[in-house]
Simulated scan of single mutants.
Amino acid sequence: MNISVVIPLLNEDESLNELYDWIAKVMQSNRYSYEILFIDDGSTDNSWNVITSLCEKDKNVKGIRFLRNYGKSQALNAGFKEVKGDVVITMDADLQDSPNEIPELYNLVANEGFDLISGWKKKRYDSKIRKNIPSKLFNAAARKTSGLKLHDFNCGLKAYKNVVVKNVDVRGEMHRYIPVLAKNAGFTKIDEKVVTHQARKYGVTKFGIDRFINGFLDLITIWFLSTFGKRPMHLFGLLGTIMFLFGFLFAFYLGIDKLFLNPKGILITQKPIFYIALSTMIIGTQFFLAGFLGEIILRTKSDTNRYAIANKLNL
Rank of each mutant, 00 (worst) to 15 (best):
residue 235 L to A: 11
residue 304 T to Y: 04
residue 153 F to M: 06
residue 104 E to H: 14
residue 209 I to V: 15
residue 54 L to E: 00
residue 34 Y to F: 15
residue 249 L to Q: 10
residue 86 D to E: 15
residue 105 L to H: 05
residue 140 A to I: 05
residue 95 L to A: 02
residue 176 R to K: 13
residue 110 A to Y: 03
residue 204 V to R: 15
residue 263 P to Q: 05
residue 247 G to N: 01
residue 146 S to W: 14
residue 197 H to N: 14
residue 261 L to F: 00
residue 245 L to K: 13
residue 46 N to V: 08
residue 119 G to H: 04
residue 144 K to Y: 08
residue 284 G to V: 10
residue 280 T to I: 08
residue 88 V to S: 04
residue 272 P to S: 11
residue 267 L to P: 00
residue 235 L to W: 07
residue 110 A to R: 09
residue 117 I to H: 05
residue 263 P to K: 07
residue 160 Y to T: 14
residue 125 Y to V: 12
residue 63 G to Q: 03
residue 305 N to S: 07
residue 236 F to W: 15
residue 156 G to S: 02
residue 133 I to C: 06
residue 260 F to C: 03
residue 219 L to I: 12
residue 8 P to N: 03
residue 211 R to K: 15
residue 41 D to G: 13
residue 254 L to C: 06
residue 229 G to Y: 06
residue 142 A to F: 03
residue 38 F to D: 09
residue 69 N to F: 02
residue 257 D to M: 03
residue 244 F to K: 12
residue 178 I to F: 00
residue 192 E to Y: 04
residue 50 V to F: 01
residue 197 H to Y: 05
residue 45 D to I: 14
residue 297 I to T: 08
residue 181 L to F: 01
residue 179 P to Q: 03
residue 176 R to T: 02
residue 25 K to D: 15
residue 214 N to C: 04
residue 210 D to R: 15
residue 127 S to G: 08
residue 18 E to Q: 13
residue 88 V to W: 03
residue 314 N to Q: 07
residue 81 K to P: 00
residue 94 D to P: 04
residue 78 A to L: 10
residue 267 L to V: 00
residue 193 K to P: 09
residue 189 K to I: 07
residue 135 S to P: 02
residue 247 G to Y: 05
residue 273 I to W: 00
residue 11 N to H: 07
residue 30 N to F: 13
residue 135 S to Q: 08
residue 284 G to K: 09
residue 128 K to T: 02
residue 314 N to Y: 01
residue 279 S to W: 13
residue 267 L to A: 10
residue 11 N to K: 14
residue 166 K to P: 05
residue 10 L to M: 08
